[in-house]
Design a binder for these strands. Structure first.
Lengths: 240, 240
DNA sequence: TAAATGAGAGAGAACGTTCTCTCTTTTTTG
DNA sequence: CAAAAAAGAGAGAACGTTCTCTCTCATTTA
């Protein structure tokens, strides 16, 4: 008696889960409705990002975002409870993209090559405006905007700290491994090297060299010099 | 008849110009009134800077600035025609402080020492909050704020470009001199080195290491490594 | 038909700015 | 030098606009 409903639900999951008209509670999670909701949220986020790039977090109004999304305020507020929530979501997405590049850092056994590559990947990803519209320095603008906001908005600060902490950990792990392999001078302060590299990488992303006519390849020796200078790698055949 | 008034003014200039109660048109420039006006402008700018550090250019309201300055809107608008004008003035002042450090760059004949020193000076000046109140990363906040604003505000962009152009010129001149002295590998791309150094310096200032517990001295080897890596100086007694 | 979705007017607060008025200081006049 | 006139400085209410967000009501979807 009590357990009559449960087998029914279970049956529905296995039988109708892929249907167009789900009739059970999983519909909320996987049905057409849910898919539409996600699409709308995406639409809003894309529009908001364009507006924030154009006018800044504080400078862009909800009306501007609504227009860009082709949506009424009533509709938009069905998907996001506040402007703040949109800001936080966009800050999180943007910083996550950064940290994902680091997470896939190659475990090459040449530490200088590894960080040169990761630096270039980072700049490539954050600088080149893959989608058509918008200014070529779109990502750099968003980067600075998020950093500025994180300095006076606790929620955004926490979001940044989360992803930047991950990035620092990742870098530190790779550096530590290289140190143990004897690739790096044991005297090197790894924490300082990580922090310095991160800060300088931010500086380079912020100024958006590719958008100013400096080709990506030109940055290769810059990152290499940075890596050599900060990590003081022992030469392949050390002379000591 | 027509020129009766004029000699009177001229006489006043030579006789009473240094008095407490000037009666001629130079009073407008050097009198008590003018001094008071400057003091008030200063008061407004200081208040506005605190507000902008706290809430950002767009986040701070004119009421907030008025309260901080202990002044009514009516009074404030007597000194600045708009919020925009205050923003521009503060952006200009902040960037000028940066460029002034570069302008006094020592003409040491050791290029690595020179840029290490200038880098440290820059961080010291921009990081340490000399005045008492406000967060310790006040200058870094303003730095990021100005950079963000410069990416979507043409007036602020022009102000930044002015001072940053001066800084680049100064650096380039020093580097060129060093190159001619044979201190730097002739192959080095000086323009790229200048741009990279500037970008990385901005990154370091932005992250405000001193405020995060990293002492200034710790940054000395970082700047040194940066200089060596980017400029590829020839060793005192080159081995080629 | 019941629930989900959206449009759009609009509420209410906050915004940057201006206006009017008062008080003080400076200059001119008799 | 005293009185009158002008100019400067500031306070604070009020302006029109714009802000974020809500509410009502129509339409679509299942």
């Amino acid at each position: 008696m009590v357990d009559q409903a449960l087998p029914k639900q279970a049956a529905n999951i296995s039988a109708d889960a892929a249907d167009d008209e789900p009739r059970c509670f999983v519909a909320k999670l996987f049905g057409k409705r849910a898919r539409n909701r996600e699409a709308q949220e995406e639409r809003i986020l894309t529009a908001a990002m364009n507006c924030f790039i154009r006018s800044g977090f504080r400078g862009a109004s909800m009306n501007e975002i609504c227009s860009e999304a082709g949506m009424s305020p009533g509709a938009l507020y069905r998907y996001f409870p506040s402007k703040e929530a949109i800001i936080e979501k966009i800050a999180a997405t943007h910083r996550q993209q950064s940290s994902e590049i680091l997470a896939r850092m190659s475990q090459s056994n040449n530490i200088v090559d590894a960080i040169t590559k990761v630096g270039l990947d980072h700049v490539r990803k954050m600088s080149l405006n893959d989608e058509g519209p918008g200014p070529s320095d779109a990502s750099a603008r968003l980067f600075v905007e998020v950093r500025a906001e994180s300095m006076r908005n606790e929620s955004v600060a926490a979001i940044c700290e989360l992803h930047e902490g991950l990035m620092r950990e990742e870098l530190l792990a790779v550096f530590s491994a290289a140190k143990e392999r004897g690739e790096i001078d044991p005297v090197t302060d790894l924490d300082l090297a990580v922090a310095s590299l991160a800060a300088m990488g931010e500086g380079i992303i912020m100024r958006n060299f590719p958008a100013q006519g400096v080709p990506l390849e030109a940055l290769e020796p810059v990152f290499r010099a940075l890596a050599v200078g900060l990590l003081r790698p022992t030469k392949p055949l050390a002379n000591k």
